[in-house]
């Protein structure tokens, strides 16, 4: 677990908890190392997930400042499915209780029926405090269920997930006949009103495969092409948000993972620490700066 935030009690670093590699695949067939996508899945395919985890209990007891004899940990495996930042539904598949005497290598194995999975499989392994210790330091965790270490994986099964930009390369003459944008190089399908909507569920970028060269560059992931397209996408969406009457209020309401939250993040990226009204002013008075600022922020090369 790479901690980006602090919990109010001592937690376990990666040196104490060792997670083996995840392997995943069709139940009964050889499992493969986990990748963001699993090909060839459908509801009729049961999935199998495996990994192993070991905890150095002596080190854990030192790190948590809880005497080894009083330290009881639980290792839980939760599996979830469904789109969104959090899976739509989550189930605890197994939990193991560890103490100083227990076998310290846990083999985790879950078979998930295909007819319980939707779109993706999400798994979270977590180490929790299983029992309140009688002693310990003031910083020692002391509530049952205290989260001490965790690791998540998500494998896309059916369609792209929210960590990918929803994109499709299609022929516009076939897909959007009689539309003004039939010959456009790309088209962003979205509805400006839905700032609260889930980003992954409401935005889709269509690239016109009738423009062969462009489509090829998109498929190849050409940086400049992607920056141009993404810049346009960001301009569209930021502009639409700025043009909303009560944009400030609406954007504030937006949950993480929503269109609105994404737009806010893009504005922060393009115009750090600028207030909404400042950005709106720029849009009106310095449209060139406004557009170029966004296009500059749309750089998709490796981020630092």
């Amino acid at each position: 677990m790479t901690a980006t935030f602090a919990l109010p009690f001592l937690t376990l670093p990666n040196e104490v908890v060792t997670l083996g590699p995840w392997i995943v695949g069709q139940a009964g067939a050889p499992l493969l190392p986990i990748k963001p996508m699993l090909d060839g899945w459908d509801y009729a395919t049961d999935l199998e997930l495996q990994s192993s985890l070991s905890i150095d209990m002596r080190a854990a007891s030192e790190v948590l400042a809880i005497p080894e004899q009083e330290l009881k940990l639980a290792v839980t495996l939760n599996v979830g499915t469904g789109r969104g930042r959090f899976p739509r539904t989550t189930k605890r598949i197994s939990s193991y209780i560890l103490d100083a005497e227990a076998e310290q290598l846990i083999e985790m194995r879950a078979i998930i029926p295909g007819n319980m999975l939707s779109g993706r499989v999400h798994a979270r392994i977590e180490v929790l405090l299983a029992a309140a210790p009688a002693s310990g330091s003031i910083l020692s965790p002391n509530c049952v269920g205290s989260r001490l270490w965790s690791e998540e994986i998500s494998v896309e099964l059916e369609d792209g997930g929210e960590n990918r930009f929803p994109i499709e390369v299609v022929s516009f003459t076939e897909t959007f006949p009689n539309h003004g944008h039939m010959t456009a190089p790309w088209y962003l399908a979205w509805k400006p009103g839905g700032l609260a909507a889930d980003f992954g569920g409401s935005i889709r970028l269509y690239v016109n495969s009738d423009h062969r060269e462009l489509a090829q560059r998109v498929v190849d992931g050409d940086d400049v092409t992607l920056q141009a397209i993404l810049g346009d996408v960001m301009v569209q969406m930021i502009t639409a948000a700025l043009d909303t009457n009560d944009s400030a209020e609406q954007l504030r309401e937006c949950e993480e993972g929503s269109v609105g939250a994404q737009i806010s993040a893009w504005m922060e990226l393009a115009f750090p620490r600028r207030g909404l009204s400042e950005i709106q002013n720029m849009q009106r008075n310095l449209p060139g700066h406004f557009h170029a600022g966004i296009h500059a922020a749309a750089e998709v090369g490796d981020l630092e």
Binding site: T4, G160, E162, N163, E168, V170, L205, A265
Partner: peptide, 24 residues
Amino acid sequence: GPSVARTAAKLGRILSNSSGKGPG
């Protein structure tokens, strides 16, 4: 259509925080 999974992922880098990295 052709697979654009790689491109989607590349574009996805500019989507914030879906990996739980916090808003920083």
